[in-house]
């Protein structure tokens, strides 16, 4: 059975799909945001730490999808890590509930500089449908109420393809 599977894999090739083209404008805008130190130190790979700031778990489903063999993240130099201390990027989902503000700040502080924060989904971007709730951090809306945001990927939830494009744009901008 194993041999049959090996044969099929050799015949059909990997399940990963070819990468889509990136938007030049988005990459240029991001490159302008980055400071020189980050560019020389991070190189062409990014370690990503996911942080849930109170999402409905829809965004997590799409991060899991992005993690599947269909998208094969690691070929782009992108990988998920288990500790904020190993991370270059915090990928934050959720509208930032008041009950999670302290946890997000701890995670952000534990991430070494230079670091980027990506707000994933409408909630993290501006509070989404939960904007104005007593249980959500007020102020700038979304996670920007607690941490500086470098890249916003809106959507409810964003598709894995949108997420991948955003992260690759970050990578490209970083390499310039």
């Amino acid at each position: 059975m194993v041999w049959r599977r090996v044969f099929r894999t050799l015949r059909d090739g990997p399940a990963a799909e070819p990468a889509a083209k990136l938007g030049e404008a988005a990459v240029r805008a991001l490159a302008e945001q980055l400071d020189a130190a980050a560019q020389t130190r991070l190189g062409r790979s990014l370690s990503i730490r996911h942080v849930n700031s109170g999402s409905c778990n829809g965004c997590e489903l799409e991060i899991h999808a992005l993690h599947s063999i269909v998208y094969d993240l690691e070929r782009f130099g992108l990988r998920f890590v288990a500790s904020p201390r190993h991370a270059d990027v915090l990928l934050v989902t959720g509208p930032l509930t008041r009950n999670l503000r302290e946890a997000l700040l701890h995670t952000w502080t534990a991430t070494p500089d230079p670091k980027w924060v990506v707000a994933m989904g409408d909630c993290a971007t501006d509070g989404g449908v939960f904007k104005g709730s007593y249980a959500i951090e007020a102020g700038a809306g979304g996670i920007a109420a607690a941490v500086p945001v470098d890249l916003k990927i809106p959507g409810c939830p964003p598709t894995p393809a949108q997420l991948l494009n955003g992260l690759r744009a970050l990578l490209e901008a970083n390499a310039r």
Binding site: N52, G54, S55, C56, N57, G58, C59, E60, L61, G94, P95, T97, N99, L100, V129, F130, G132, S133, Y134, A135, I136, P157
Partner: peptide, 26 residues
Amino acid sequence: AHKGTLALMRGKTPRTAARFAARLSG
């Protein structure tokens, strides 16, 4: 992850409140 969903639903029409029900657990 408490987002105050039940409070947000109050005073809304069912059509609007359905968006909160759809985001209780994605």
